[in-house]
């Protein structure tokens, strides 16, 4: 086993600042996207996943939401939503993807998609306040236990925000990669696929549990009979309680 030390889990609170920039048509949107800071791109293409963590539906990013709803260009909005969802792993990547979609719209049409006063897209910028949770993980199993208990801020910070700003080899994913590369890759791809945070949590923990089944079976066969019987009784008890509670609800 590789010894890579422990890892301190963090959560995050985001402060939001106006950047002083606003787009009033697709042309100004294109120009400004080229100049936005990574923090502003993150705010408008990623942060909504923490603002709206629930549900199974993929929530639209701020930019395509505005292009579709306010600038009234549903086709470009669709393309943007897809491009942002596909290229949401770094500022450079998402910036290029947005520019490519907007550049595909003829300049005259970009200018024609102007919005009335008050409908401008106002660019904001996030500032992250990263906070230690006080939970230190020592290995993969401990990480599983910690993430099962962790709040959305922890998931968002380590699976989405940290790799977005620092790359996949930094932070928690970097630490995990040294211990279990396939698992780290699974976490990285689930975090980057644009789903709501709750769906990411369910999928990752579900896959993790399934992945651990063979190992747990092998471990179980090596235990004394009385221990295995006690474990079986506990599992059956849990199942009975679940069936009962589902019947009551």
């Amino acid at each position: 086993m590789t010894s890579v030390g422990t890892f301190d889990l963090c959560t995050v609170a985001h402060l939001v600042r106006p950047t002083g920039r606003a787009a009033h048509d697709l042309e100004t949107l294109l120009a400004m996207v080229g100049e936005l800071s990574p923090a502003a791109l993150f705010q408008h293409t990623i942060q909504h996943r923490l603002r709206e963590p629930l549900g199974d539906e993929v929530v639209r990013d701020d930019l395509s939401f505005w292009v579709g709803g306010v600038a009234q260009d549903p086709e470009t909005a669709e393309r943007l939503a897809f491009a942002i969802g596909e290229h949401s792993t770094s500022a450079d990547e998402v910036r290029s993807a947005i520019r490519a979609v907007l550049e595909a719209v003829p300049e005259r049409a970009r200018r024609a998609r102007s919005v009335p006063e008050g409908g401008e897209f106002v660019f904001l910028e996030g500032e992250s306040v990263v906070l230690p949770t006080g939970r230190t993980v020592v290995d993969v199993n401990d990480l599983h236990a910690a993430l099962t208990e962790a709040d959305n801020g922890v998931w968002f910070y380590h699976l989405i925000e940290e790799p977005w700003f620092q790359g996949r080899d930094a932070g928690l994913l970097g630490w995990l990669r040294a211990l279990d590369r396939p698992l780290a890759d699974t976490l990285a791809s689930e975090g980057a696929n644009g789903q709501p945070l709750e769906s990411v949590r369910k999928k990752v923990l579900g896959r993790w549990r399934r992945r651990a089944l063979p190992r747990r079976l092998v471990e179980a066969t090596g235990r004394p009979d009385d221990v295995r019987r006690a474990e079986a009784r506990e599992v059956m008890g849990r199942l009975a309680r679940r069936v009962k509670s589902e019947g009551n609800s």
Binding site: A13, P132, G153
Partner: peptide, 15 residues
């Protein structure tokens, strides 16, 4: 709200 937002408040309070 559930535990999550309160844990963030507690983490901020610790800081």
């Amino acid at each position: 709200t559930g535990d999550g937002p309160i844990r963030v408040l507690e983490a901020l309070a610790r800081r």
